[in-house]
Structures are given as C-alpha cells and as structure tokens.
Design a protein around this nucleic acid. Structure first.
Lengths: 119, 119
DNA sequence: ATCAAGTGCTATAGTTTGTCAAGTGACTGA
DNA sequence: TCAGTCACTTGACAAACTATAGCACTTGAT
C-alpha cells in the first residue's frame, strides 16, 4: 500500500470502524459492560469467532478492557475504555443522521411510530 | 433475520456505514464530485468491482447521485445528495475522535513528532 | 495514422474475511 | 441425571473483497 504517503488519523479511524460488527460492539458497550455471549446477542447475533477477533483488536487498540472475573466457571466482562467511551459522539452523530434520513429511506411513509428511540 | 423484533435506525445506519469503503467514499465525495476512477483513487485504491457495488447501493439509498455527462467517451460524476452531505457530521465526529485518541494509539511513544496533526 | 494512456465500467479468477455448527470443562437448576 | 449456561476454540464452508484484463471509444503525442 502506498497510502502511507501521508498519515491520516481519519482514514485510520475509518479502517477500524468499518470492520464488521465493530460499531455495533461499541454501541452495545456504551450502555455498560457485558459478558461475551450477552455482547454477541446485543450486537445482533455476531458469531463467537468474529466477535473474539474484534474484541481482541479493540482491546489492542485500547478502546475496551477485558476483565476476567473467574476462570472456571468462565466469567468475563467487556467494558469500554475512555477512548472507547468517546466514540459516543460518533454513535450519536450516526444516530442523529439515521433518524433524520435513514428511516425515511428505509421505511418511507412510517414516521408516526415512536418506539425505543432513546439512546 | 429475527433482528426485526424492533426497528432501529441506528442499527440500519451502522449496517450501511460499516461496509468496506463506504465511509471512505463519503469522505472523498464531501470534498466535491468525482468521476469513477478518481473516486477509486481518492478512497485509497478500491477496486472497480467493489466500488461499483457500493456506489449503486449508496445511490439506491439516496445518499449520492450519479450523473452521466457523456456516454462515449465515458464520463460520469458521483456527487453526494443532501442525505449524504449530512454525513459530514459523522465524519467530523470520527475525525475529532481520531485526533484525540487514535494517533496516540497507533503511534505510542511518539508524541514529540509534529506531523500533519493540525486540523 | 499510430501508439500509449485515459474514461467508466464488466467479467472472471483468486484471496481474505466472516459464518455456522459443534465441542470443551465446570457449574446451575430441574 | 440431564439440559442449559459460561467463554471461548476449531474446522469446514460461504460470502465478501481484490487483482487483472478487457471493451469501445477519445485524447494527446509523434
């Protein structure tokens, strides 16, 4: 890759965030720490293999912290580190955009249906 | 998919944005319209097959507009639609986050090396 | 006129990435 | 006792993405 001609943090960030499930994971963890399986369900059914890869990556990047409460029976929790918590802004921006544009695109005609929109 | 138990625009948005190259494409187009090949280069070398798929998807979603200026020689331009332009907020949020956290994460130990860090 | 390079794509292989299903070892509740 | 839970791991597979070539044509240099 000759993309190194100029280091760009935004490009880097996008590279991380565009990986499948990453933003879902961050969003889920924004509501508080979760265990491995709960997290997998919270993000909408990510398979354990991919989930582990993402989690390791995010942990390596310093975006989240993994805490082992007990080895056996296994009990672990994943929690956002400060750098991860700050992604709240990004998720919020996505949320604002989505409510403004996306549900109109996805479900045209349905705009009087208030559900769990708080976040 | 049983993810329909509850429609969530944020989830939808993330699904779109997490597709490889999508955010790069939006970011590139935020600076103005581009032709197919220029766009491919601007996003950092996306191959034409994937690029076309993304572009079609984004156009279908109403995020961008494709204008054919001439059939032969081929000349087309891709430009963000209003819904796409509004993603500026999201890209900005990513940019802010990246400058605050990511270059520290990516290059630990190097903090006395002022490069293109100014926004 | 001819050659090289460019336009916006498309087609076809080939590689990478993500998925599914099953299994591990100890525990919990019926 | 037996199914179900936890946090993963493994291996076979499918889906996604990539590289490369090529099309029909124009432009610019020679």
């Amino acid at each position: 890759m000759d993309a190194e001609r100029e280091y760009c943090p935004v490009h880097e960030a996008i590279q991380v965030l565009q990986e499948k499930w990453t933003m879902h994971i961050v969003r889920a963890l924004l509501d508080g720490p979760l265990g491995f399986n709960d997290l997998g369900r919270a993000v909408g059914g990510c398979n354990p293999a991919t989930l582990k890869v993402r989690l390791d990556h995010l942990e390596g990047l310093g975006l989240l912290r993994r805490t082992v409460h007990s080895q056996m029976p296994p009990r672990t929790s994943y929690e956002l580190a400060p750098a991860g918590v700050d992604l709240q802004r990004v998720i919020d921006a996505i949320g604002a955009w989505a409510r403004e544009h996306l549900d109109v695109v996805a479900v045209p005609g349905v705009d009087a249906e208030p559900r769990a929109a708080a976040g």
